[in-house]
């Protein structure tokens, strides 16, 4: 449960981006990469809760920041909620990112996949870990609305397919050129979130380098707590054996080598 402090649009309406700030005791235990499972209406439709990743954690103030993009009936109902209303949310749920204790951290984002990485960047910053964001997006209109949410990450590189913001090309090209440079001391680790084909390409690059990588995955979820097995994906255990992994409970963050890339 939580109390809505802010639920407002970011940037131009056609970008459909929203920020949701919730006051809740969940902020005390939340970890970067975990999610809230939100009931958007009391009616039988839409039936399921909506999982939203946690983008900012302020444990002292007891506040969580989440971002979302309007995608359908569920997010549209969520966008109608006003500050002062209660938010029926389960959480914090799932297994989040590993916050590195040393070295340098690369955050690799595709579009709105940046959201869970923002809380990881925040936690790494608190530990004094140098952190860089490589962020691919549709075009300059997307970044005009969204770029501001990553302002706390010290180094940021952008890519768009039309070259209207940052370099022209894919975020994987930003990664390849970053990996061609020497690391600034300590080990380099990475975390990624974005569309599946992007994550698959990032995982292949990381394996070849090699670069330790965690990925945050998204699937349709029902229960959100590991009971229904609806969100499960084929994976590999640490020994390489075939297993099924529940995105909601075993993830949403997985070591890239434990995902069976389809």
């Amino acid at each position: 449960m939580g109390l809505i402090i802010d639920n407002s649009r970011l940037g131009a309406p056609e970008q459909k981006l929203y920020r949701l700030v919730v006051e809740s005791e969940m902020a005390r235990t939340a970890r970067p990469g975990q999610f809230l499972h939100i009931r958007v209406a009391d009616t039988p439709a839409p039936l399921l809760r909506r999982p939203l990743s946690i983008a900012g954690i302020d444990a002292a103030a007891g506040r969580l920041t989440l971002y979302y993009r309007l995608k359908g009936q569920g997010t549209e109902l969520l966008a109608r909620k006003r500050p002062g209303e209660k938010l029926d949310a389960l959480g914090p749920l799932g297994r989040g990112f590993t916050v590195p204790a040393a070295g340098e951290l690369l955050l690799i984002a595709g579009g709105v996949g940046v959201f869970p990485l923002l809380s990881l960047g925040e936690a790494a910053g608190r530990r004094g870990i140098p952190c860089a964001l490589l962020w691919g997006g549709e075009n300059s209109a997307f970044f005009a609305a969204a770029a501001g949410i990553a302002g706390h990450i010290p180094t940021r590189r952008y890519a768009t397919m039309d070259g209207s913001f940052g370099v022209r090309g894919l975020v994987t090209e930003l990664l390849t050129s970053r990996l061609a440079q020497p690391s600034t001391g300590g080990g380099l680790t990475a975390a990624a979130c974005g569309p599946y084909p992007m994550l698959k390409a990032v995982a292949a690059t990381a394996r070849a380098h090699p670069l330790p990588l965690e990925v945050s995955l998204e699937t349709t979820m029902a229960c959100g707590i590991g009971a229904c097995l609806g969100c499960a994906l084929p994976g590999r255990d640490a020994a390489g054996g075939r297993v099924t992994r529940r995105v909601c409970l075993d993830g949403p963050v997985f070591p890239a080598e434990e995902v069976e890339w389809l």
Binding site: A45, L47, T219, T220, G230, C231, P234
Partner: peptide
Amino acid sequence: LGNPPPRLAETPAGL
């Protein structure tokens, strides 16, 4: 191991 994903689809008042 069960079926390949996706395993769920939300429908009006149903799953």
